[in-house]
Design a protein around this nucleic acid. Structure first.
Lengths: 340, 340
DNA sequence: CATGGCGATTACATCGATGTAAATATGTCG
DNA sequence: CGACATATTTACATCGATGTAATCGCCATG
């Protein structure tokens, strides 16, 4: 009663079907030179015994698992959860399974992902780095195929997929400028020394200001600890209480923007009456907030598709093609928070 | 230049250190009878070669990977993303790694999780089922330790962790009743035949109504397709346009509630002026919505901790203890949407 | 100095699947 | 009908790590 039948091995299937283990393997792997008779017999044995391949054994022999890892900073940032869904869809369509991994934006854990430490069972990694610096990237283990998402790697030793962050931020800023806004704060903006996506977006913001002849005011760049509601709320509160009187907020993700909306509401500021607010990412929440949120929508499906494609190609030809950099599309979705 | 050094094996380390492979293994696994000298020498070799154990090899030999799988319906439902974070924390504290898996609430994929199909590399599975029926659970593979989250399994062949859904819903309903609400709609409520968490919560709702002598109105039970903003918005719109005139919405998760808030706003209904709204899960968004959302907050940390503990115990003693059912705590957090 | 005891180390087999190369079956053609 | 090509199947070794059991070395004891 208590004793559980051991998991059947390929050998058991072979005996049951009266063939050799290798023949069973051939059936499983759809080797072409297997007669219909044997194939049927083996399949029957597999079904009868409830056999499933042992991936450990297979990997040991083949060095492949058919799985890829997606490592993102935080799953409770909706953008990454939504992106993960697309990556899983795309991988499934290509016959792969995705192992999802959250690094919590901790450098060590991002490094671990790069080195395949937690990801040993996977053939390659799609990594969205936040805390990694270029030096870290340079020291990565070349044996593990990697595709980076988000910020473009400085060293440039991996394939990369992202949107044109500078342009996206410029366009978003232009949208605000076109509505007559002049004191535009950047929530989550990059201060000196920062190198990530925030830097690129802040640069785009400055480009737009410059082109419009609006002076740049460093006080309006508000760095944040993380990219959550609470950080956006804190930043907005800071702006209001300091009396910095911005007439628009360019928030570097939607969570920040939504948190800011709340704080502005608490302080009696009306959006878009008193200020405009814009976010990045187009998460589902932004369509349903009050007011709904104008945002820069990256083409998540395209990003996912490109990332999976690049990774699979890299897996199939490790020393193959030159490095590639896929720039995915984006568009600005105007909603109530900027009068849309 | 192009050729990459092969990944070092335990044998390479052994040769480098001048010992046998088994001794290296002993060092890696902290076997006690290894002299300090050898241990140091081996460690040096490991560092010098950059050796990392090959988990496939280890699993093949030991049958263990030190990884556990967490399979949730949808990661873009914030509750699951937040829960996942807690599970990962807890697992890390216990020296395990979590493989995250999203089933998209598809029965086949939940079954696959139960059967360890995608999860072969893990020693056990924490599964939050949505689409599985009791029969599916009965046919599960007993070799893979499983802990179920959420609804309690009917058959009862696995350990289980959840909150007291009936009581939680009753309390939430009582809160609304105490504010004088009488026409309370249940968004996401269970219609005949449903067996999941929605059923339990709907039952709790009816209990509260009954105790207060408020008649049950089946028209106020609004089933939804999924538990997203859009579904909540749709349900609220339906209620308003049908003229069903509820004076409160008990939404079975926060996403539904937040979507409903938006729809009510669009229809010019004030919350909590015209209606109250309550959700379940206490996701971060609910603290920052306008109005902020009253919600039933399950103790996610406790749930994660209990789930990991039960699973690890089950892994260590597969035929061991009797089935266990951990009921985690919950509390109602009153916010603006019910006048808090 | 021989012997026993114990800690440290090693040889070997094994986990499950599959690549290689060889063996066997099947079929074709003159 | 025989020779040869082709299609199927098989024996064996191997991937990397580790459990088992045996061996080695050292020290204490009689």
């Amino acid at each position: 009663m208590n004793s559980v039948a051991a998991r059947p091995r390929i050998k058991d299937v072979a005996e049951y079907a009266g063939v050799s283990p290798k023949t069973v393997s051939n059936v499983i792997n759809n080797f072409e030179h297997v007669s219909e008779r044997t194939r049927a017999a083996v399949q029957e044995a597999i079904d009868a015994l409830g056999y499933r391949v042992n991936i450990a054994g297979r990997q040991l022999r083949q060095g492949r698992t058919g799985m890829i890892t997606l490592a993102v900073p935080e799953l409770d940032v909706a953008y990454f959860a939504e992106l993960a869904k697309h990556v899983m869809d795309e991988a499934a369509a290509r016959g792969r399974t995705v192992l999802l991994h959250s690094t919590e934006a901790v450098r060590e854990r991002e490094l671990a992902a790069l080195h395949g430490f937690d990801a040993q069972f996977s053939d390659g990694v799609i990594l969205s780095p936040l805390a990694l610096n270029p030096r870290d990237l340079a020291t990565r283990d070349r044996r593990l195929p990697v595709v980076l998402l988000g910020e473009r790697p400085a060293g440039g030793s991996t394939d990369h997929v992202g949107i044109d962050n500078v342009r996206a931020a410029r366009e978003a800023t232009e949208h605000l400028l076109s509505r007559g806004r002049r004191r535009i704060a950047v929530v989550g903006g990059a201060v000196r020394g920062r190198q990530g996506t925030d830097r690129l977006r802040t640069d785009g913001y400055r480009e737009a200001l410059g082109a419009a002849g609006v002076p740049f005011d460093a006080d309006l760049v508000i760095p944040v600890g993380a990219y959550h509601w609470r950080d956006g709320a804190r930043a907005a509160t800071w702006l209001v209480e300091r009396g910095l009187c911005p007439d628009a907020l360019l928030c570097l993700n939607d969570h920040l923007a939504l948190g800011a909306l709340r704080a502005l509401h608490e302080h009696g500021r009306s959006v878009p009456g008193d200020l405009d607010v814009v976010g990045f990412d187009d998460i589902e929440a932004s369509r349903f907030s009050v007011p709904s949120l104008t945002t820069v929508a990256p083409d998540k499906r395209e990003i996912a598709r490109a990332a999976v494609s690049l990774l699979l190609e890299r897996i199939d030809a490790p020393d193959g093609a030159a490095l590639r950099d896929h720039v995915a599309g984006h568009r600005i979705i105007v909603r109530e928070s900027t009068g849309g």
